[in-house]
């Protein structure tokens, strides 16, 4: 009798062990696949959102910063956003990363200059932020310390940014986008959040505040010596891109060629090469649909 019980217990233990192994294998498979998917999506989003473009001066050292943006306020130098603990964002958790992206506040509570387009990123979905965060965590660390921005007086006083943000809060119209068309909604999300197209293509008022994110009617030079003008990309047939069709826009955002065979110029060259060309054809079709819709006047 005792022998029978012992055998039964042994078989039970073996069965449970086998079950545990099987569950472990399933768990590893599930986690690995999900991380892989998340990384791939994270890479696409990090490119489409301009993280790569703005935080990479040397393509051999991606995301290590050092990219210079000349503005009428001075020169901004992008920081290292690899997970180096000393010079990058290695100490940041997901919550701090999200706060930086959505609210423009560093983990130490310091406000970021609006050259960092947090006003557009505030609409980012949490799972997209999660994918970008995990992707950045997975790439090689670069231990490069970038120098501080070189800004003119009084813009070099960061504390003034709190005042600016209050003014911006009053003037910034965070117009909600209402449509039942799911493709247009997706396009609007890419244009107004991930791609932050309005950061260049929307007119700016004093203190460089963008009054209306939905207005993509272009922006003149902010200073005669700075080539930061951006064309009208509204659906206006003469002033904007209303004469283009969906295929023209998709092809342009994939290759940089305009419908007349001319090639894109200026900053948009890099934005296509390192950004929009990473998006899928369906995502670019959604962008085209939104840009040509009545919502983009």
């Amino acid at each position: 009798m005792v022998t029978v019980i012992t055998n039964l217990e042994k078989r039970k233990t073996n069965f449970l062990l086998k079950l545990n192994y099987t569950l472990l294998i399933f768990l590893i498979y599930f986690v690995t696949n999900n991380i892989a998917f998340s990384k791939e999506r994270g890479q696409i989003l990090a490119h489409a959102a301009g993280c790569f473009g703005c935080h990479t001066a040397n393509k051999d050292l991606p995301y290590s910063g050092g990219y210079k943006i000349n503005t009428k306020y001075g020169t901004f130098i992008s920081p290292n956003i690899t997970f180096d603990k000393k010079n990058g964002i290695g100490k940041w958790n997901l919550e701090e990363f999200t706060r930086a992206l959505k609210h423009g506040i560093s983990p130490k509570g310091v406000p970021y200059y609006p050259v960092f387009p947090y006003n557009w990123y505030k609409e980012l979905k949490n799972n997209d932020i999660n994918d970008i965060y995990n992707y950045l965590r997975s790439i090689p660390i670069q231990s490069i310390k970038q120098s501080n921005h070189k800004l003119k007086f009084p813009y070099n006083f960061r504390a003034l940014l709190w005042m600016r943000s209050k003014i911006e809060y009053i003037f910034f119209s965070n117009n909600q986008f209402n449509t039942n068309n799911e493709i247009e909604k997706q396009g609007s999300y890419i244009v107004k959040s991930i791609g932050h197209c309005g950061a260049c293509h929307s007119p700016r008022t004093f203190l460089s505040i963008v009054k209306n994110k939905n207005d993509l009617s272009g922006r003149p030079k902010s200073h005669k010596k700075i080539n930061d003008e951006a064309p009208n990309i509204s659906n206006n047939k003469t002033k904007g891109i209303g004469s283009w069709d969906e295929n023209d826009i998709v092809f342009f955002l994939q290759t940089g060629f305009k419908p007349d065979g001319d090639y894109v110029e200026g900053h948009m060259t890099g934005i296509i090469e390192d950004g929009t060309s990473y998006l899928s054809e369906n995502e670019l079709k959604a962008v085209s649909k939104y840009l040509l819709s009545q919502h983009n006047k």
Binding site: E229, Q254, T255, G256, F257, Y263, G266, T269
Partner: peptide
Amino acid sequence: IGKALGALGKTCGNCHNKFREKKN
């Protein structure tokens, strides 16, 4: 063909950005 055209485009862009005045 699409990839080759895209690669050609990048070289057009490099040339235009350096040697051609920006359009208004």
